[in-house]
Write a protein that binds this DNA or RNA. Structure first.
Lengths: 101, 101
DNA sequence: TCAAAAGTTTCACTTTAGTGAAACTTTTGT
DNA sequence: ACAAAAGTTTCACTAAAGTGAAACTTTTGA
């Protein structure tokens, strides 16, 4: 079957959903930590571009669909090696990482 | 004082030091996992460019010099948020991350 | 409308990054 | 040569990522 037509929520929608409205303490505290969300969206975009379901991707990487789901949606941290594994083994792509001073 | 004039070892030197000569089982098994090394080198280059000691960097980030040393040299994994913290708080730079399909 | 496929959530467990103090080694500058 | 600063290593602990099974919810396609 095809992947579900998941609408990618925006960063603002995500923040409000998870951290509350702007100006609240919780929201402000966590404002800086949205990088994980961006990674999740990035991964989801890439997966859909490839026309893969979470389960298909999971199998290629050697994990389960529940873990893929968590990465795409949750606030959880991802290790660089994990991200790399998903991108390379699962999506046949390449993860780029650089420091700009 | 100034940072030590650490010579950055090459990827090949690193691999041989940590995993043994090419062709051995251990070396082959871990061949793919050198991304951490590259990150360490990247960070060290950036730190030296800024003329900071490990201790100075550590203080800015809110950690200790022993941890900085580990990241620059060890095989250990680094979380993306940790890397980001070091780059932004410590080096005043920006961490770029992208997926190429 | 409704079964099957896709995606999410919960729970419980294992592994490992993150952490600091302290002892140690290496480099620097005089 | 040698003291002080820079960097490394070890040890031990804590918090959080990694993991899978299974129950659950949502979407798809006929």
């Amino acid at each position: 079957m095809k992947p579900k037509n998941n609408k990618l929520i925006t960063l603002d929608e995500f923040k409000e959903k998870n951290y509350g409205k702007r100006g609240t303490k919780k929201r402000d505290e966590l404002e800086a930590g949205y990088e994980n969300f961006k990674i999740g969206v990035l991964l989801q975009e890439a997966r859909l571009q490839k026309g893969l379901t979470q389960e298909e991707l999971a199998e290629k990487v050697g994990t389960t669909k529940s873990y893929i789901s968590k990465i795409e949606n949750d606030i959880k941290e991802v290790r660089i090696s994990t991200l790399q594994k998903i991108v390379e083994l699962g999506l046949g792509g390449h993860l780029d990482l650089s420091i700009k001073l």
